[in-house]
Design a protein around this nucleic acid. Structure first.
Lengths: 118, 118
DNA sequence: CGGGTAGTACTACGTCGTGTAGAGGTGGGT
DNA sequence: ACCCACCTCTACACGACGTAGTACTACCCG
């Protein structure tokens, strides 16, 4: 895959947080605090599309963008990618399990248990 | 933290795979296939040290480099970092648990169980 | 004692990803 | 006929990284 830059991530965050596809203009409005040129937003949306993070469909002259995958899926994939970096996946996984907080260990346990039951 | 480049990662791999600190020259020799200039290796070792991935100690005129953390710790940290990217850690964790292979789920389960027992 | 050798520090340069944005084209509404 | 909203293309600066040269120093060999 590939990591995202800071602006790219902000924009993905907006699209992930929003149900339904948005136009560049709409995204820009939702990021009014950053005061970006409209073309900047368009450029980034375009790059994200090219990288496969977004899908776009026509809406009149405008494009509407929406995430190709959920943020959770993206995060999970990043985690797997990190995991791939090691020769010893088992050791890394164990290490990871030991590192997460108690609450999170609980969540993991529950998810794994449910998995098992299916 | 911060990701590593490709060369940087190769060098970390060598140091991670090796017990005990190595000099730049030794690292270079272990990467003979890439035929890098000695200074290249030194530069990268230096950058890695500055980034906090390596510690170095004097050995005569030379420096000896060794990882500040194990590869597993690094991988686990990367995974946690990915996890931090989301607002909903629980959802991402669940997603992650569902995504890993059966074998890996088993490893996770075991690690979590052992955790619990302590 | 003088030179090669190993090692260091410093500097440099090309490339790529990313943030940022302007210029110019085009189609629809008034 | 014109303006506006949008698009596409192109551009540029900056920082990270791969890669390496240069210059300086300390030591061993003969």
């Amino acid at each position: 895959m590939k990591g995202l830059g800071e602006l790219e991530r902000s924009i993905m965050d907006i699209l992930w947080a929003h149900d339904g596809p948005l136009t560049a203009r709409e995204v820009g409005r939702l990021m009014a605090d950053r005061d970006l040129a409209p073309t900047t937003v368009m450029t980034v949306l375009d790059r994200l599309t090219r990288k496969g993070f977004l899908n776009r469909t026509r809406d009149g002259r405008a494009w509407r963008y929406e995430p190709g995958a959920s943020r959770d899926a993206y995060v999970a994939e990043l985690m797997l990618e990190a995991l791939d970096m090691t020769g010893d996946r088992s050791a890394a996984l164990t290490r990871f399990a030991q590192t997460v907080s108690g609450t999170e260990a609980e969540i993991l346990r529950k998810a794994l248990t449910e998995l098992e039951e299916e």
